Amino acid sequence: MVSILSSNERTGVWTVPREITVYDFLGSVELDFTDAVFQHPDVTIKVLGSVEVKVKRTIKEKFVAFANSLKGTFQSR
């Protein structure tokens, strides 16, 4: 996903690939996994910029995030 001075989102029912790469430059990206269909036991999300990720409460415990960037933050709510 690429977001340059704009917003981009994946919401509703969608099939989650094994790997997602996000490039966000002065925009916003939202990945909503609430109704998503998972075909792989593990999903890797590579981020350059920022991304908002939403998951169901039932899988929140299984959702592990690693922030590995020169400048960035990770928040869990």
Results as ranks from 00 to 15, higher is better:
D35P: 00
V2A: 04
V43Y: 11
V13S: 04
A36H: 02
G49Q: 06
V16W: 09
G49W: 10
G27A: 00
E9R: 07
P17E: 12
E52A: 13
G49I: 11
V22E: 08
V55C: 02
H40T: 04
E52W: 08
I59D: 10
V29R: 02
V22T: 03
K71N: 03
V29L: 12
F25H: 00
M1E: 09
T58V: 07
T15G: 03
T73S: 15
G49E: 06
V53R: 08
Q39S: 05
N8G: 01
K71S: 12
L48T: 05
T11S: 05
R18A: 10
I45S: 07
M1S: 09
S3A: 10
L70D: 06
V43R: 06
T73V: 10
Y23C: 08
V47H: 05
L5H: 13
S50N: 15
T21A: 06
Q39C: 05
Q39T: 01
V64P: 08
T58N: 09
T58A: 03
K62E: 03
G49C: 10
V47I: 14
S6F: 08
L26T: 05
L26M: 05
K56A: 15
I4D: 07
E61W: 12
I59C: 12
T58R: 07
T58Q: 11
I4F: 13
T73G: 04
F63I: 10
L31Y: 07
T73D: 14
S3T: 03
S3Y: 00
V43A: 08
S50A: 12
V16Y: 11
L70T: 13
T58H: 08
E52Q: 13
V16R: 02
V53Q: 12
A67L: 05
V47Q: 03
